[in-house]
Amino acid sequence: MPDTIWFRDDARPRRPRLSRERIVAAAVALLDAEGVAGFSMRGLAARLGAGTMSLYEYVRTKEDVLDLALDEVIGEIEVPSEIQAHGEIEGHGEPKPWRELLIAQLTQSRAVMRRHPWVPALTATRPLLGPRALARSRLFYAALAEAGLAGPVLTAAVGTLSSYVNGFVAAENIWWQKVRTPAADAEIRARVAGHLDAEFARLSQVEDADFDGQFLLGLGLILDGIEGRLGGAGR
Rank of each mutant, 00 (worst) to 15 (best):
P117D: 08
S137F: 12
G75A: 12
E100L: 11
E88H: 07
R114L: 15
P97C: 14
W118D: 09
S163D: 15
S109L: 13
W98G: 12
L134V: 15
V79T: 15
T155S: 07
P95V: 14
L149R: 00
G151R: 04
L129P: 02
I77S: 04
H86Y: 13
V119E: 02
S81I: 12
L161D: 00
G130Q: 04
L101T: 08
I77A: 06
A147F: 03
L129H: 13
A145K: 12
L134D: 06
A150Q: 05
A133I: 02
Q105R: 08
T125I: 09
P80N: 05
G130D: 08
R136N: 13
G93P: 12
E82A: 12
L161Q: 00
T125C: 06
T123P: 00
Y164M: 02
L122Q: 10
L122V: 07
P120A: 11
V73M: 09
G159L: 00
L149A: 04
N166L: 15
V153H: 06
Q108I: 06
S81P: 06
A104L: 14
N166H: 04
L128I: 09
L129Q: 13
Q84W: 03
T160G: 03
W118V: 12
P95Y: 12
V158P: 00
A145G: 12
S81L: 14
E78Y: 04
L144H: 02
Y141V: 15
A111M: 13
Y141D: 11
V73C: 08
L102S: 05
S163T: 13
A121Y: 08
G151I: 03
L102H: 06
N166F: 04
G93K: 14
G91P: 03
W98H: 05
S163N: 13
L128T: 07
G130I: 12
M113H: 08
I103Q: 14
G130H: 07
H92M: 10
Y164I: 00
H86M: 10
Q108L: 10
L106Q: 10
G167T: 03
T155R: 03
L129F: 11
S163K: 06
P152T: 02
I103D: 07
E88A: 11
G167A: 02
S163M: 11
R126F: 02
P131K: 05
R115N: 11
L128F: 03
D71Y: 09
P95T: 10
G87V: 07
Q108K: 10
Y164F: 11
S163A: 15
H116C: 12
A135Y: 01
W98T: 08
L149G: 01
E100D: 14
P97A: 14
E94W: 09
S137N: 13
E100M: 06
R138L: 15
S137G: 10
A142N: 09
A156V: 00
P117A: 11
P80G: 04
A135P: 01
G87E: 04
H116W: 13
P95K: 08
Y141A: 14
I77P: 00
L101S: 13
